[in-house]
Amino acid sequence: MIDWAMYLLMGAAMGTLGGVFGIGGGLIAIPALVLMFGMDQQLAQGTTLVMVVPNVMLSLWRYHQRTRIFMRHALPLAAAGFVFAWIGSIIAVGLDPDAMRIGFAIFMLVLATYVYLQMYLRKPPPSTELRHPWPWLMVLGSGSGILGGLFGLGASVLATPILSTVFGATQVVAQGLSLALAVPSTGVTLVTYALHNHIDWHIGIPMALGGLLSVSWGVRLAHALPEKSLRTWFCLFLVLCAALMIFKA
């Protein structure tokens, strides 16, 4: 019972941080499980997905209540993301855990660099209409899906910034489409990891409950803090976790 309460609190902390940083608790939970609990990379990713999937579904439902998501944009993203997340997850469960850990650390470093540069790069004015036609959405869905399958993350990690910069979508449109992409891709990835016994349900379920209880509070906190400070601290956090994972004994 004490362990279950600890995992619940850990999930609540991850949900809060995920809401604050706007990318998702999974990116934070995976290195935490690797470094604090000594899990191998696949087990950490699979366990984190138990928390990520219901959080993404809840976020999509709440978003749909407030903002219209156009199906002509969401369907190509979601279909391509589903297929390539399935392919990526099949590849991931057969890889060497140490190689996966190093790959995930490198991914965090690249993401930290990209997020930081976004503060200083000039962006074109956003629009409610996307700049590129639907086949390019399938390309984005494919790339986001395979990364999500490989690293056990929501596809929004890659899709949201690309939709807002390359496709010229407003932030709310980009986030809504990314959620529509993330639901099927994280779902099929979770099933694949579960079938290969890469999930610790005893840890994942209370983390999921904690995340559901706290993610909304984290989003409210994010709106009260300076954006540049949030992005800077988030990037520093990613770099620190990446370094610890690379040099993990």
Score class of each variant (00 low, 15 high):
residue 71 M to T: 05
residue 90 I to F: 08
residue 129 E to D: 14
residue 217 W to A: 15
residue 245 M to K: 12
residue 196 H to S: 11
residue 125 P to T: 12
residue 213 L to Y: 10
residue 118 Q to M: 14
residue 35 L to H: 09
residue 92 A to M: 07
residue 26 G to K: 00
residue 44 A to H: 01
residue 119 M to T: 08
residue 160 T to C: 06
residue 19 G to H: 13
residue 212 L to M: 14
residue 204 G to D: 01
residue 205 I to T: 06
residue 134 W to S: 14
residue 221 L to F: 12
residue 72 R to V: 11
residue 63 Y to T: 03
residue 43 L to R: 14
residue 165 T to K: 01
residue 113 T to W: 00
residue 201 W to T: 03
residue 31 P to V: 07
residue 206 P to S: 06
residue 19 G to T: 09
residue 197 N to I: 01
residue 47 T to M: 10
residue 176 G to V: 08
residue 185 S to H: 09
residue 199 I to T: 04
residue 53 V to A: 07
residue 18 G to I: 10
residue 205 I to G: 02
residue 179 L to R: 07
residue 231 R to W: 02
residue 225 L to F: 13
residue 52 V to H: 07
residue 228 K to C: 05
residue 148 G to K: 04
residue 22 G to W: 11
residue 234 F to H: 08
residue 127 S to F: 00
residue 7 Y to L: 12
residue 188 V to N: 04
residue 88 G to I: 11
residue 90 I to Q: 14
residue 168 G to Y: 06
residue 244 L to M: 14
residue 133 P to T: 09
residue 20 V to R: 09
residue 224 A to S: 15
residue 159 A to G: 07
residue 57 M to D: 04
residue 82 F to D: 02
residue 230 L to D: 10
residue 114 Y to V: 00
residue 35 L to F: 03
residue 170 T to D: 08
residue 197 N to Q: 13
residue 233 W to Q: 11
residue 111 L to W: 02
residue 143 G to S: 03
residue 136 W to G: 06
residue 211 G to Y: 10
residue 36 M to I: 08
residue 78 A to C: 08
residue 216 S to Q: 13
residue 83 V to P: 04
residue 84 F to N: 07
residue 65 Q to S: 12
residue 63 Y to E: 04
residue 44 A to N: 01
residue 37 F to V: 04
residue 98 D to V: 08
residue 32 A to P: 00
residue 58 L to Q: 12
residue 117 L to R: 13
residue 66 R to V: 08
residue 175 Q to W: 03
residue 175 Q to S: 13
residue 1 M to W: 09
residue 243 A to C: 11
residue 21 F to G: 00
residue 161 P to I: 12
residue 94 G to I: 08
residue 197 N to P: 01
residue 171 Q to P: 05
residue 163 L to N: 02
residue 163 L to A: 03
residue 119 M to Q: 15
residue 139 V to N: 00
residue 218 G to P: 05
residue 133 P to M: 09
residue 218 G to K: 05
residue 46 G to S: 07
residue 125 P to Y: 10
residue 241 C to K: 01
residue 148 G to C: 02
residue 220 R to F: 15
residue 140 L to P: 04
residue 25 G to F: 00
residue 210 G to M: 09
residue 52 V to N: 04
residue 170 T to L: 08
residue 144 S to R: 01
residue 177 L to D: 06
residue 194 A to S: 12
residue 101 R to S: 07
residue 183 V to G: 11
residue 175 Q to D: 02
residue 10 M to R: 07
residue 76 P to M: 10
residue 9 L to W: 10
residue 245 M to Q: 12
residue 221 L to I: 14
residue 153 L to T: 05
residue 249 A to H: 10
residue 45 Q to P: 03
residue 77 L to Y: 12
residue 88 G to Q: 07
residue 84 F to T: 15
residue 48 T to K: 05
residue 69 I to H: 06
residue 95 L to W: 14
residue 5 A to C: 06
residue 220 R to A: 15
residue 185 S to M: 06
residue 220 R to W: 15
residue 93 V to Q: 05
residue 88 G to E: 08
residue 77 L to E: 09
residue 208 A to G: 09
residue 106 I to M: 01
residue 183 V to T: 11
residue 84 F to V: 07
residue 137 L to K: 06
residue 34 V to E: 13
residue 186 T to Y: 05
residue 249 A to W: 04
residue 26 G to Q: 00
residue 244 L to I: 03
residue 188 V to R: 03
residue 153 L to N: 03
residue 63 Y to I: 01
residue 157 V to M: 14
residue 235 C to N: 05
residue 7 Y to M: 14
residue 237 F to A: 08
